[in-house]
């Protein structure tokens, strides 16, 4: 969509208001329940296992470019690199998008600095491989095999290369945790990785790990926003079904409302 319509404006307000409200409420002390997500719990355990084996960790964001998704992935990377800094194991970050290089460098540096291990930080572990999807996949495979990776984290947006990346880790016996918003790639990760986070769970990881009040409130707000969407879907479905039997219910009215311009 190039431009908003009045109905879309109202929908945006309806979706964002609960997020702001819940963030405010959570900051004021309300405690929200967060269900257990096995895949996220495994993150700490996987890093600990790699530390015991003395094997490095690899963290890739696939095809993710500078976007809110990258920001969500950086939250996870920050948590993982803090543990890595603590237990003295290297974390390797292969990249496809050079624009995110500086942000990743800053994230890792901040994490090492927070743990007082800045002297151990090596920016050469952030490796820009290629912007080409398949060249990136082959570069990733090479690193996984050469470095004998202990744990592989695959978070972000992925395309056809997802299975090549996941199989590379599988071949060296690495523990693998994946999370993606690319719905078509989820089955590939489920078959090749130990744990897979589906869609929005990826956005929840940072809140789950840090228990930050802003992020927790935002999670609760998202649930309410999804309820708004669900209500709209139900209204649309009922309306369209009734339009088949009663003339009063004009077909496509919701579609018309949303496409009506200023």
């Amino acid at each position: 969509m190039e431009h908003s319509t009045p109905a879309i404006c109202i929908l945006i307000i309806l979706l964002l208001s609960p997020v702001l409200y819940c963030i405010r409420k959570c900051r004021n002390g309300t405690v929200y329940y967060l269900r257990k997500i096995k895949g996220i719990d495994e993150i700490n355990f996987s890093v600990a296992t790699s530390a015991e084996q003395g094997k490095p960790i690899i963290f890739t964001m696939g095809m993710t470019d500078v976007s809110p998704l990258l920001y969500a992935c950086l939250g996870i990377l920050s948590h993982v690199s803090k543990i890595c800094a603590k237990v003295n194991i290297p974390v390797i970050v292969p990249l496809r998008d050079p624009e995110s290089l500086a942000l990743i460098d800053l994230t890792l540096k901040s994490a090492y600095e927070e743990k007082g291990k800045l002297h151990q930080y090596d920016s050469n572990r952030i490796k820009y491989l290629s912007s080409d999807q398949l060249a990136f996949a082959s570069g990733y495979q090479g690193i996984v095999h050469r470095e004998k990776i202990g744990t592989a984290f695959l978070f972000g947006s992925f395309a056809a290369e997802s299975l090549i990346l996941a199989e590379a880790g599988s071949q060296v016996g690495a523990r693998q945790i994946a999370g993606t918003v690319s719905a078509e790639q989820i089955p590939f990760f489920i078959t090749s990785c130990d744990y897979t986070l589906l869609g929005e769970e990826l956005f929840a990881v940072s809140a789950y790990l840090t228990k930050d009040k802003t992020q927790l409130g935002s999670l609760r707000g998202q649930d309410i926003a999804k309820l708004v969407l669900l209500t709209l879907i139900i209204i649309g479905t009922v309306w369209e079904t009734l339009s088949l039997h009663f003339q009063y219910f004009e077909s496509g009215i919701l579609k018309n409302i949303f496409s009506m311009s200023w």
């Binding site: 945006i12 979706l15 964002l16 997020v19 976007s67 809110p68 998704l69 920001y71 969500a72 918003v181 719905a183 989820i186 589906l198 869609g199 929005e200 990826l202 956005f203 929840a204 935002s218 707000g221 998202q222 926003a225 999804k226 969407l229």
Partner: peptide, 13 residues
């Protein structure tokens, strides 16, 4: 999955 990701992306933005 797409709806969930979109709402989460919107809130993160």
């Amino acid at each position: 999955i797409a709806f969930g990701s979109a709402v989460a992306g919107l809130s993160l933005s």
